[in-house]
Design a protein around this nucleic acid. Structure first.
Lengths: 116, 116
DNA sequence: TTCGATATTCGATATTCGTCGAACATCGAA
DNA sequence: TTCGATGTTCGACGAATATCGAATATCGAA
């Protein structure tokens, strides 16, 4: 289909288990890190990951349904951004401390490995 | 088998994705909440959940491998406890804000529903 | 209108996950 | 030693998930 309007769950309807599940997958965590590292939105088209576009669409849908991410449509293209403040309201500190952590296996938003 | 000694990962080897995966399952989250609500250890035998004992063993293994929980063996029985301080060292604030949240679907440690 | 770009959905596949009961291993007590 | 209690592992099952390529729907431009 096309970048049609999507529904986003209300903040109060966002569930913890859904958020944790969404974050508990390396590719999705990487997407979240990437979005967090840029203050603003990111063009769908410019999200460059070593996965098929349909797979990317799938992961973004899960992040969207979990309340982590929101889409904005502009013509035939769309932009993705983190629902940072809303998440902070719902689960204070959660996103922040997940992002703060950089373990050995945590790839950087750009794809490079990160020591600390 | 029996409550034999288990290996626990070193704090520095605990991975974020493993922790999030472990917490992203209702039964396991409930176990963690229960352990957090009691300051100390809990006898395996006394963990009362509506699942088979083998399933409980499975979930505890996942929590253990993720670094969230530790086992202590005493004779033929064992005791489970949260690795609270170590988790705090590794991922500051994470466990705390996960536990702080009580969403609509979050069952209490005792099994009762909890409004707030 | 026709076409190309864009993102989603569909169908298929392989894998992982949660669950159970049964079998097993270990320890302490009789 | 024999037994019972206690957890763990095994084998099996269905459900959920990650992945891909192909098909599809929508928009903007030619």
């Amino acid at each position: 289909m096309s970048p049609r309007e999507h529904t986003h769950p209300a903040v109060e309807d966002v569930e913890l288990v859904a958020v944790l599940s969404a974050l508990a997958e390396p590719t999705r965590l990487r997407i979240v890190r990437m979005l967090a590292a840029m203050e603003g939105e990111r063009a769908w088209r410019d999200i460059d990951l070593p996965i098929a576009r349909s797979t990317l669409s799938h992961h973004l849908k899960i992040l969207r349904n979990a309340g982590l991410v929101q889409n904005r449509t502009e013509g035939t293209r769309c932009f993705v951004s983190l629902r940072g403040e809303e998440l902070e309201d719902r689960f204070p500190g959660l996103l922040e401390c997940v992002l703060a952590c950089r373990d050995a296996g945590a790839a950087d938003a750009d794809g490079a490995e990160c020591g600390l």
